[in-house]
Design a protein around this nucleic acid. Structure first.
Length: 568
DNA sequence: AAAAAAC
């Protein structure tokens, strides 16, 4: 409710009921219906991460074009805002309300808070056609955009694409599900002009663009997005894997590759084996940058950076979260960077209604989730656990307790199992997906309506990314987080995140004292065993293969979830 | 603090 109160401020008309029925507003599958519905349920500026002004729909009043003196003045103010301090978020949020009042009538520009920092920042572009005109984006690329439902740029696209097209380095921070992938893919493909294989290419030999992402699944998804943009020309976009690494060992084949999408370790392995040459790479993107720069990944990223030796390389980092230390590292690897922050850093979308559920201790979680899934829910639901064995065992327990269409996905599974699980998810065959942190970042399953943190996330960043699997591209979402007594030391930090993004938190949680470092360390040491239902008679030794059970559950198709909101 | 990231 408080979220709605927040939504209602700023003098913007907002019909909640209507909006609720329009949760598919931004669906790329229904572009025709999009503009019509969007103009009816309006969001105030600070919550509007999407630019949805339907050019010429005539329903919205157009009173400015984003280049007014007021707009320019506002931009100046934004640029002067250093946004260095983590603690300033609340005051910023307050200011945004005024911003929303002042600028909400300009439909042709993104109206959410965008803060830019850096030298000679290129002007943002409000439409894809404006970008195309300014930067000579090919008509093919442009038509591929519209063919795939990209009609109007989101905030990060409006600001990020011009920056990248002017060959500047960029650190982009924009909430989950606001179109970061396109923000870097479009400029890469436009800058490359033509495939290496084409006759008029003067690109020189070798791979010219590299995108790194932390999981195979995400790399795969980025590759798919890239292929959509590549339609109609002979681009060679390679999803780097064991197999493709082999084919690229041949130099002549390698020189025909335009873009590589990869996980870091795969790339490093190929560099080290001498099979991969990155000295002609002109564009390097780190997606989920804070993850790529953390202790485990950074050594690999360093090697990739070293291998990309071309003096004119453009580098960009993207994420929804970028803690101070990661940002510092990012800024060091970038040259004269521009920093763009859309919305509030490290904050979930207000479209996701979040709640915290007390479950006392670990054994109490299973009855809670079974109760949750026994009631009507919005499939598919994504459930996060803290480890692979717990993901597997929870999936087993759900199946054994009669929950239908349960799937499991973690990195301990085979490549094929992982791929199958993702495609079941994409086809809408999974109603309940139990997973680990591997699914936390970047994955864009448009249908996900609910996220359950069965195990408490171990950082604010993890929380923000996990729940960001729902509420994508303007849809509403719901996120439930279980917490036990053991989770208390981190509870307050997460509770503050809920507050920040317009959800409510029980009073007593906010009154919790700030936990000591020691306590937090202890909390981290809490070991959670596999999930077993003591009430159930069947033992773990029944030696039923998990996948058989899951397949069986599909055949049984027992309890059907009754969706409470409109399903596609 | 755990999971993830090759072969």
């Amino acid at each position: 409710m408080e979220a709605f109160q927040l939504l209602s401020r700023g003098g913007v008309k907002f019909d909640k009921k209507r909006f609720k029925t329009d949760v598919q507003l931004f669906s790329k599958d229904t572009p025709a219906a999009t503009s019509e519905k969007i103009s009816e349920g309006e969001l105030p500026g600070e919550l509007d991460y999407f630019k949805y002004a339907p050019g010429g729909s005539g329903k919205r009043k157009a009173e400015g074009d984003g280049t007014t003196a007021k707009a320019l003045k506002k931009r100046k103010v934004e640029e002067d805002n250093e946004d260095e301090d983590e603690d300033e978020k609340h005051s910023d949020a307050e200011e945004e309300d005024e911003d929303a009042n002042g600028t909400e009538e300009t439909p042709s520009r993104p109206r959410q808070r965008v803060v830019t920092k850096g030298s000679d920042i290129p002007a943002h572009a409000d439409t894809f056609s404006a970008m195309a005109e300014r930067y000579q984006i090919s008509s093919l690329l442009l038509s591929n955009l519209t063919a795939n439902g990209y009609n109007d740029p989101t905030g990060i696209q409006s600001y990020g694409i011009p920056i990248l097209l002017e060959s500047r380095d960029l650190a982009a921070i924009s909430p989950t599900g606001t179109g970061k992938t396109l923000s870097y893919l479009l400029p890469i493909m436009s800058s490359l002009r033509a495939p290496s294989s084409s006759a008029n290419s003067d690109a020189g030999a070798g791979v010219r663009a590299v995108v790194v992402a932390p999981t195979r699944e995400l790399a795969h998804q980025i590759h798919n997005e890239c292929l959509k943009l590549a339609q109609g020309r002979k681009w060679r976009v390679v999803l780097f894997s064991k197999a493709t690494a082999g084919t690229l060992a041949d130099k002549s084949a390698r020189d025909k590759v335009d873009i590589i999408i990869s996980t870091p370790l795969r790339l490093v392995a190929s560099i080290k084996s001498g099979g991969l040459e990155l000295s002609n790479v002109r564009h390097l993107v780190l997606d989920e940058a804070d993850r790529m720069l953390d202790a485990e990944f950074f050594p690999q990223v360093e090697e990739i950076l070293a291998a990309c030796s071309h003096p004119q390389i453009q580098k960009a980092v993207f994420s929804a979260t970028l803690p101070a230390n990661a940002e510092k590292m990012a800024m060091q690897m970038l040259k004269d960077p521009i920093r763009v922050v859309v919305g509030l850093k490290d904050t979930p979308l207000p479209l996701i209604s979040q709640s915290l559920t007390y479950v006392a201790d670990d054994p109490s979680k299973l009855p809670s989730i079974l109760g949750y899934l026994a009631k009507p829910y919005n499939p598919p639901v994504l459930i996060f656990t803290s480890s692979q064995p717990r993901a597997t065992s929870l999936a087993q327990e759900l199946v054994l307790n009669g929950v239908s269409n349960v799937d499991c996905l973690h990195a301990g599974m085979t490549k094929k199992e992982r791929e199958d699980a993702v495609s079941r998810m994409r086809r809408g065959e999974s109603w309940v997906m139990v997973s680990t942190e591997v699914m936390a970042r970047g994955m864009d399953f448009k249908g996900i309506r609910e996220v359950v943190n069965y195990d408490f996330p171990t950082s604010v960043q993890s929380y923000v990314h996990r729940i960001g699997r729902t509420g994508r591209a303007g849809r509403e979402g719901k996120a439930v987080t279980y917490f036990t007594d053991d989770d208390a030391p981190f509870l307050k930090a997460i509770a503050n995140v809920l507050l920040q993004s317009g959800s409510t938190v029980p009073e007593w949680i906010l009154k919790l004292p700030k936990p000591s470092k020691l306590k937090r360390r202890q909390m981290g040491k809490v070991k959670r065993a596999e999930i077993v239902n003591p009430a159930r008679k069947i033992g773990r030794s029944d030696a039923i293969k998990k996948r058989d059970m899951i397949a069986g559950s599909k055949r049984r198709a027992a309890r059907k979830p009754s969706p409470t909101a409109g399903v596609e």
